[in-house]
């Protein structure tokens, strides 16, 4: 794999007295979508939070576009060019939808073209533009969380389980927006439990178990190999 946008080597993270990541090695290719898969508790969210600097890696190196970012603070990492959608969405309920997005635009006012694109992808946000984000439904909050991450172009997007707890129709809206983002040439590292969505969006897959990457390769390979799926993730599903 040539010139990955993000590289993790031997990343170990502890949370309190627990060792969560036991040496994660991962390459995220530039301009493509990489899916981070694995059972609950495998360390996927911790990996994303460690990349963002929200958990401090005890050991190992994390490089973004060739620059070492481990040991930096979350604001420095965000400004280095990473857009982050956390698992709990991190919406500011007291701020309006507009204010949530203004805050996400680091370099000044909301860029009009991106704003138009986001509102076309998620029309519900236009409806609630001036209302407190706390009034949004779960799906709309997730749309806002993604909109916030993409309101300015970033080098890399980290998206943690965007389909969690959402109705299929909303997941479809989300998938369409992410596909648009992908067409734009964005580099995305996404945690996803919904394998159909992961298969539809992902170019690459990395499977985690017990704080390590246990398999990495092309999504097409994982998608067609049911035995591999079952071995890696305990998945038993019909492949359409």
């Amino acid at each position: 794999m040539s010139d990955p946008i993000l590289t993790l080597r031997g990343v170990k993270t502890d949370i309190a007295q627990y060792h969560i990541l036991h040496g994660v090695d991962l390459d995220v290719p530039r301009g493509q979508v990489t899916m981070l898969l694995g059972r609950n508790g495998a360390g996927k969210t911790t990996t994303l939070r460690t990349i963002m600097g929200l958990w401090r890696a005890r050991e190992g190196s994390i490089t973004l576009d060739g620059t070492e970012i481990s040991g930096r603070t979350p604001p420095q990492i965000a400004r280095a060019g990473i857009g982050f959608v956390p698992e709990d969405m991190g919406i500011f309920a007291d701020l309006t939808v507009e204010e949530n997005l203004i805050l996400a635009a680091l370099s000044g006012p909301l860029p009009e073209d991106r704003k138009d694109w986001v509102l076309a992808a998620f029309p519900a946000l236009r409806t609630f533009w001036k209302m407190p984000a706390g009034n949004l439904s779960g799906g709309q909050k997730q749309m806002l969380a993604i909109a916030r991450a993409v309101i300015e172009p970033r080098q890399l997007y980290l998206i943690d389980e965007p389909s969690k707890g959402l109705a299929p129709a909303i997941v479809a809206t989300m998938a369409r927006a992410l596909r648009d983002l992908k067409r734009e040439g964005a580099s995305i590292l996404m945690v996803e439990q919904n394998f159909s969505l992961a298969r539809a969006l992902g170019d690459h897959a990395a499977v985690m178990d017990d704080g390590r990457i246990v398999w990495a390769g092309a999504m097409a390979e994982l998608a067609t190999d049911t035995a591999l799926q079952e071995r890696l993730m305990g998945l038993k599903m019909e492949v359409a």
Binding site: D94, L95, E99
Partner: peptide
Amino acid sequence: LIVRAGVENPDMVQAMGYH
């Protein structure tokens, strides 16, 4: 906005690029 957002969720404000 940063102050109001920080009162709600300081971690997220940090992850969005503000010290």
